[in-house]
Design a protein around this nucleic acid. Structure first.
Lengths: 213, 213, 213, 213
DNA sequence: ACGTGCGGGACACCCCGTTAGT
DNA sequence: ACTAACGGGGTGTCCCGCACGT
């Protein structure tokens, strides 16, 4: 080499902590979504995120903390946006639930995501009995979900949109559980048709909650 | 030592290969039930089974084969006995389903097993997207389950025990999925009351399939 | 934001570099005293000192330099004050040595410090064969100690307070070594009584250096 | 390659568990002797021993267990052979102690081992305050050492070889402690001459225990 | 049919040090 | 003078599976 050009130190150390942290979070979400929490690898997480091990451990104190952050900061907001906001303040809760349900099952079938199931449900099944931190976080999300559906049904009863003999708590419990079951079934069968069938039956069930005219 | 007496090999190796194999299988079932397949440890399995690693690898070619055998030889028969036989040839399928459902949810609540969920569902959620061997075995079991419930509902329609407008395939899909969801919910909430509520709602749904008289 | 008001940097960084440096030094002393140099953690040091890693590396170029500074600036002065000054210019060196010895063994037994041994000895045992920088510093301190005790004994001989057949170098070597050994024994046995016994024997030895009257 | 010669599987898996175990033990002794227990590396141990990590963890459950085994199975016997057996049943305990002392200090000076100190003392200084398992093992060895020296001195008094005014417990405590101190001093000063001087002073002290004739 | 010494790779954690910035 | 993001490498641990023996 003739002329020794001073290597411009690109060295994109970057110092954009929020962005770095979020890259890690998203990579961890994907890793745990695919391989589960126990099967997920921290080494793969930081490689996929394109950061170093040091950066990961700077932002998260360990695998557990990373998992908790995924629940709190990724899965929670996702749940809120997908399933809770659509029924919030809806005039006809049954219609709103069916709408959200049809929309997202369709989306997940088309994108192929359905074979990996619901991220929240996956973590719930794997980690709830093993780790209290996960258990309380996950149960908190489900409880909130049930609470809002219960409210929506109760206010639907008041406005004559839902049959008065329906007990909102029980129905909400079944709706949420059924949803988990449908996603779980679809995942284990890897069968779109089956998902559609179960979704139709769920819509039939929802319709059965309407007042007999 | 003057005379080397051949030690009489009492060595209660016992030569009961079937029993050995079954001990391993049960220990593996318990281990995977508790920690999942990926989180489960072969080392713990053979220690709990009270055999050596060599014995385990003699009977099963590896962790994967052991997992498959657990599905085929432990979980499958369990499923059959618990959920399929009670509705087999029942006069009133809805009553039979409700009966099985009420009985086993009660049992699992009392024994505390409910916090660990359904063994089949656990494996399904964890391994279906990761391993085709598990996926096909598990889906086979669920498919059989749905098939028999579909049949039971169809024959119920013929005998006037089920409303003719019910589509048996869809209803069976929801019943099976709902069951998974209810067990999953109970596991992640660790809440008996919630399990009872959801079970009640499921029974309401089943009643809604009866003919309007 | 229209007008960017410069936040008045109250920021009590305090700009007291000497104080910061000393806090780090003391924390490092404690950490290395407890866990050894290799087992000691820089991360713990700066956390205990209540400063950041950056501050630590600003004042000390690395772990090694920090360790050296602990020897030079903490352990050295401590040694001087405890063991050297009391015999400095003493009329009866044997009495002075016994006095210092009795006083500090008593103090360390009462405070419980004796179970952690002598900071200098600890570092000496761990690091002398591994690192020349430590070795020369530590040996320097011991050499100074022996030198002063040798002098004290020699001048004691001149003044008739010490038996002339005593070779001051050898006796000083044993006194210093014995002291190390006694602290080491006490530390590994965690036994006060043993420390007292050995200290008594040491005092007997010192008395044996007096002239036979 | 024309003729595919079946590679004779030399594969010296060997299956000589005792030999393997002992190789690991010796390598661990050397590693911990040189770098201390905390600074010592399991990775280096099994590489030096010429075995694999699997073999190491088959024979020892972890670093701690390996360290304990080094104390029990290497250092203990060494201590016994070097310092305890020579005074066992000796007619003149003082002569026997001086003999052992002169012999081994000479050996260690010539071999150069003295710069690494006494293996037992090293571990004692490092680990006694940090780990109860080490502490009790090490203290056990020292206690045994003191016990036997105490006995030897007591029986020496009876036989007129030791001055009756000597308190055997105290003297034994100082002898053992002094020995530790001398080895420690030699190690930290890396100075042969100093070791000889201190050893001479120790012999003088031992002579001072004889009856005044 | 079963026991065990052993192989080697992956994992989570934690460490010390650097550097761009304030 | 001091901060925090970040770089990587090393550590002890544990795991699954093999192969030789009995």
């Amino acid at each position: 080499m003739f002329i020794s050009v001073k290597k411009k130190k690109i060295k994109s150390t970057a110092k954009t902590p929020e962005a770095t942290r979020y890259k890690i979070l998203l990579a961890a979400f994907a890793e745990f979504y695919k391989n589960g929490f126990q099967g997920g690898s921290i080494n793969r997480v930081f490689k996929i995120a394109g950061v170093t091990k040091g950066a990961l451990f700077h932002h998260f104190s360990g695998k557990e903390a990373l998992g908790y952050a995924v629940v709190d900061e990724v899965i929670g907001p996702l749940l809120l946006q997908r399933w809770l906001q659509p029924v919030e303040g809806a005039d006809d809760p049954i219609e709103a639930m069916k709408g959200a349900f049809r929309r997202y099952t369709k989306e997940d079938i088309e994108s192929g995501h359905f074979v990996q199931g619901c991220p929240l449900n996956n973590l719930a099944q794997e980690m709830s009995p093993l780790d209290d931190g996960f258990q309380s976080r996950i149960d908190g999300l489900y409880a909130e979900w049930r609470r809002r559906y219960t409210e929506a049904l109760a206010s639907g009863i008041k406005r004559g949109k839902v049959r008065p003999s329906v007990r909102p708590e029980n129905a909400a419990a079944l709706i949420v559980a059924g949803q988990m079951g449908i996603y779980g079934t679809a995942k284990s069968s890897q069968n779109k048709q089956l998902m559609i069938e179960a979704a139709e039956a769920m819509c039939d069930y929802l319709d059965s909650l309407r007042p007999n005219e």
